[in-house]
C-alpha cells in the first residue's frame, strides 16, 4: 500500500520533469525554426515566405535566388550548425568537469582551434580540408596540453582553469602575430578570428561542419546517459558500471571536433559554449539531460545575436560581439554567485 503511493509519487515527479524537459526542448526548437526562417527572409530587402520557399525548392526567382542561395542560406546554416556545436560541446565540458567555468571558451580550447585555423589560412594559405583538420588537431592539442600541465598530484579544477587562462593568453598572442604577419588581411578578417562572425560565410565552406555535426551529435547524445552518471564522481561512476576512461575519451573527442570545426568556419563566436549549458540547465531543470537543449540554446543565441547585430543598430555588428556583450556580464554574475556559495 505504502509502496503503491510511493510508486505514484516517483513516477509523477519523473513525468513532470520529463514533460518540462520535452516542452522546453520543443519550444527551443520552435524558436530556432522561427529564427532560421527570419534569417532567410530578412536582409537589405525583405522577401516573402512564398518567394523563399520557391527558391529553396530550386526555382529561379528574379533577385531572390542570388541573395538567398549565396548569402542568406549559408549564413543561416553556419549559424545553426555552429551554434549547435558550440552549445553541445560546451555543455559536455561543463558537465564532465562539474564546473560551468570549465568550458572551451574560458580554458582556451576555442583559442587553440582559432590559432590553428588562422595559421593555416594566413601562413600556409591552405584549403578548407587542411584548415578543418588543423583546427581539430590544434583544439585536441590544447586539451592534451591543459591536461598534462594541470595533472599534478591531486587534480584540481581551479588549477586547470588557471592554466587554461594562461594558455589562452599565449594562443591569442599567436593569433595576433599571425594576423600581423598576414598584412594583406584587413581588419574585418581579424575581427572575425577574434570574436566570430557569420558574415560572408559561403556554401562551399560548410560541408566539413555539416558532416561533423551530423556524425558526432548522435555519439555524444548516446554517451549522455554515461555523462549523467559521470557527474556523480569518478568512484560512483565506476561502481555503477561506467567505463569512465572510454566515456570521457569519446565525449572529449566528439565535442572538441565539433567545436573546432565550428570555430574554423565562423571564428570563435564568443561565450556561446559558455552560456548555452547553464541557460539550458536552468530552463529544463535538473534531472533531464540538457545536451540537446544546450545545443538548441546555442543555435538560438547565435542566430538571435546575428539578427540583432545585423538589424538592431545603425552599424552591422558581428554575432560574436553581441554574444560577448551578453555573455561577459553573465560570467561575472556567475562568479559572484559561485564566490558567495564558496564553490571556488
Amino acid at each position: 500500500m505504502n509502496n503503491t503511493s510511493s510508486l505514484e509519487m516517483i513516477s509523477t515527479g519523473r513525468r513532470q520533469r520529463r514533460l518540462r524537459g520535452m516542452a522546453v526542448t520543443s519550444l527551443l526548437a520552435l524558436l530556432a525554426c522561427v529564427l532560421s526562417v527570419s534569417m532567410l527572409l530578412l536582409g537589405n530587402t525583405i522577401y516573402s515566405i512564398s518567394d523563399v520557399i520557391r527558391v529553396l525548392f530550386g526555382e529561379q526567382v528574379q533577385g531572390v535566388s542570388f541573395a538567398v542561395n549565396t548569402i542568406r542560406l549559408p549564413r543561416m546554416l553556419a549559424g545553426l550548425l555552429a551554434g549547435f556545436a558550440f552549445g553541445i560541446g560546451g555543455c559536455v565540458f561543463q558537465t564532465m568537469l562539474r564546473n560551468p567555468l570549465a568550458n572551451p571558451n574560458v580554458i582556451g580550447i576555442t583559442s587553440g582551434s582559432s590559432a590553428g585555423a588562422v595559421f593555416c589560412i594566413i601562413i600556409l594559405q591552405a584549403d578548407r580540408m587542411v584548415i578543418s583538420v588543423a583546427s581539430v588537431v590544434a583544439g585536441l592539442a590544447t586539451v592534451i596540453v591543459i591536461y598534462l600541465l594541470s595533472r599534478g598530484k591531486v587534480f584540481s579544477i581551479g588549477r586547470l582553469i588557471l592554466i587554461g587562462i594562461g594558455l589562452q593568453a599565449m594562443l591569442d598572442a599567436f593569433i595576433s602575430y599571425f594576423l600581423l604577419v598576414g598584412a594583406q588581411q584587413d581588419i574585418p578578417a581579424a575581427l572575425r578570428w577574434l570574436t566570430g562572425s557569420l558574415n560572408g560565410t559561403q556554401m562551399h565552406e560548410l560541408p566539413p561542419l555539416i558532416f561533423t555535426v551530423l556524425f558526432f551529435t548522435p555519439i555524444v547524445i548516446l554517451l549522455g546517459k554515461q555523462l549523467s552518471i559521470l557527474e556523480l564522481g569518478e568512484q560512483s561512476a565506476i561502481s555503477l558500471g561506467v567505463n569512465t576512461d572510454k566515456t570521457r575519451l569519446g565525449l572529449i573527442l566528439g565535442s572538441v571536433c565539433m567545436i573546432a570545426i565550428a570555430t574554423a568556419t565562423t571564428g570563435p563566436i564568443a561565450f556561446v559554449a559558455f552560456l548555452s549549458g547553464p541557460i539550458a540547465k536552468r530552463l529544463v531543470g535538473a534531472g533531464f539531460l540538457s545536451l540537446v537543449p544546450a545545443g538548441l540554446v546555442g543555435v538560438n543565441l547565435v542566430l538571435a545575436a546575428d539578427l540583432l547585430g545585423q538589424f538592431a543598430f545603425d552599424y552591422r555588428y558581428p554575432a560574436g560581439i553581441i554574444t560577448a556583450i551578453i555573455g561577459a556580464p553573465y560570467l561575472i554574475f556567475l562568479l559572484i554567485h559561485m564566490n558567495r556559495k564558496g564553490d571556488l
Binding site: 520533469r17 557527474e231 564522481g233 540547465k281 531543470g285 535538473a286 534531472g287
Partner: peptide
C-alpha cells in the same frame, strides 16, 4: 560522493 547541482 558528489551531488550534481539541483538534482532531486
Amino acid at each position: 560522493p558528489i551531488v550534481p547541482e539541483g538534482i532531486t
